[in-house]
Design a protein around this nucleic acid. Structure first.
Length: 301
DNA sequence: CGTCTTTGACCCGCGC
DNA sequence: GCGCGGGTCAAAGACG
């Protein structure tokens, strides 16, 4: 976005020459015509003045909007830095409790089904996986309520009005409701990958920040996440219905498909891990967070 | 044609 | 008992 260009565009100088006598050539100097021309000229002058006033007003507004935009961009950069820091810290924290703490911390954060899956990107506080085609969505935070409901806030494209949080699972929307405390509607989803899976998901835009989608997960999946190539690429919600119609054979089929594509997935994951590692090591924020985390663990003399 | 989303209606729990 | 609000159902239309 080129703000300077936009600002520059507002300083328009209209070289208008309205109602000038040059337009007429060879016409006899008739007084009546002159009077009319004077009248027209003064009228058009008024119009020009009005237009110029309007232009000035629009220019002012444009400057104001530009200032707001600059402030917004600054805030965005600031927030982005903070998010990077948080994600680096979360990664560090995640590693610390998965590697050193074992069972005790598992009660604080509910274990996720197959959390190593690539498709659970939006549920894990990991860097944004742009390669996964998540349309610019960015997981910001994951919290767990006392009733085992896991709450995920996802930054969404404000222009995207859908309440879809891509987490790699297949969801079937079964309801939508406007709640009292939030003008944005809440959408209700059920896991459609396995008919026996009782997981439910509620997705609602945050009342404070409408670009934030808040997804509340209720329950645990009793199945592995669907293979990546089947999730919401060709279809909006994948092959959910086939699973519902005849569960057992299709599930077996899914398992076979999964086994067949395991080698492919392993290669994909390797690639992704390498990409993520390269990205992270280039990121100065991550480096700084890593240094501070390591210096906290390794006593520096 | 099968499946999904939409949306109004219905159900149920809770507070008064 | 009544009203309110959240959650779910199910018919209808859309879509691939």
């Amino acid at each position: 976005m080129d703000e300077q260009w936009m600002i520059g565009q507002t300083s328009l100088s209209l070289s208008l020459n309205v109602g000038g006598p040059t337009a007429r050539r060879g016409a006899p100097p008739v007084s009546k015509v002159l009077v009319e021309e004077d009248f027209m000229s003064s009228r058009k002058n008024h119009e020009v003045e009005a237009l110029e006033a309007e232009l000035r007003r629009v220019g002012e507004e444009n400057r104001r909007l530009s200032d707001m935009l600059r402030a917004l961009v600054a805030k965005y950069a600031d927030l982005q830095g903070k998010v990077s820091g948080m994600m680096a810290a979360a990664n560090n924290h995640h590693q610390s409790w998965t590697t050193s703490e074992g069972g005790s911390s598992a009660s604080a954060i509910r274990k996720r089904p197959r959390s190593d899956s690539l498709d659970t990107a939006s549920r894990n506080p990991s860097p944004p996986l742009t390669a996964a085609g998540s349309s610019g969505r960015l997981a910001v935070s994951v919290t767990v309520g006392p009733d085992q409901a896991e709450c995920t806030s996802v930054h969404a494209d404000p222009s995207d009005l859908s309440l879809v949080v891509k987490d790699g699972y297949q969801w079937r929307k079964y309801g939508q409701k406007v709640t009292k405390d939030n003008p944005c509607p809440r959408a209700y989803f059920r896991c459609s990958f396995a008919p026996s899976c009782q997981v439910k998901k509620k997705v609602q835009r945050s009342a404070e920040d409408k670009t934030v989608l808040v997804a509340t997960y209720d329950g645990d999946h009793n199945h592995a996440p669907p293979p990546k190539q089947q999730s919401s690429s060709s279809r909006k919600s994948g092959d959910a219905a086939a699973v519902r119609v005849s569960a057992a054979p299709v599930l077996a089929q899914q398992q076979r498909k999964q086994e067949a594509s395991t080698a492919e997935q392993v290669a994909d994951r390797k690639n992704l891990v390498e990409q993520m590692a390269a990205t992270l090591t280039r990121d100065p924020v991550f480096k700084a967070a890593l240094v501070s985390a390591l210096s906290g663990r390794i006593p520096v003399a």
